[in-house]
């Protein structure tokens, strides 16, 4: 990955060098490499190793995250998971703040922001939220099967 040409592509590019459409693209790729340090190494490897995999990583930690305040990006998720997850994470008393957003409707991405109090991390809170939501699903499933059983007994239905 070439990280060398940063200087030439900096803010004051002369406009005659390249068509305008070229410049933002260049700038962006440079910025990415600078900011998302921990992404860099892996991205390179992934591209080489798994050319066929279109979607390798479903959850990404967004840049600028700290231990207790982090933003996660979920690929291929939407309101279905986002809102329920937000609710369950917010139920955790150690979580100060949790919200989700879908930054753009035509991108299949969902962002979750979690801020916790001291004593736990945002990542732990996310993992706990996922597990809790799964437990909630279990309970609702059990209750539904129970209710179905009861309904069938009451109405003398078999099968």
């Amino acid at each position: 990955m070439p990280s060398q040409l940063k200087t030439s592509g900096s803010d004051d590019v002369s406009m005659d060098d390249a068509p305008t459409s070229h410049q933002p693209q260049q700038d962006e790729s440079m910025m990415d490499q600078d900011e998302v340090e921990d992404d860099e190494e892996n991205d390179g490897e992934e591209e080489e190793e798994e050319e066929e995999e279109e979607e390798v990583q479903r959850v990404k930690l967004l840049p600028g995250s700290t231990e207790t305040a982090a933003s996660f990006e979920f690929a291929n998720e939407g309101h279905t998971l986002g809102n329920a997850l937000r609710y369950v994470i917010m139920k955790n008393p150690e979580v100060e703040f949790c919200a989700y957003a879908i930054p753009h409707p035509s991108e299949a991405k969902m962002n979750v922001r979690i801020q916790t109090y001291e004593g736990t991390t945002a990542i732990q809170a996310l993992e706990k939220g996922l597990a809790d939501l799964q437990d909630l699903c279990d309970v609702v499933n059990d209750k539904f099967l129970e209710a179905r059983q009861k309904f069938q007994e009451q109405n003398g239905v078999t099968a």
Partner: peptide, 9 residues
Amino acid sequence: DGYNGPRSP
């Protein structure tokens, strides 16, 4: 290393 490790497909 955090969540950016390579994922198995």
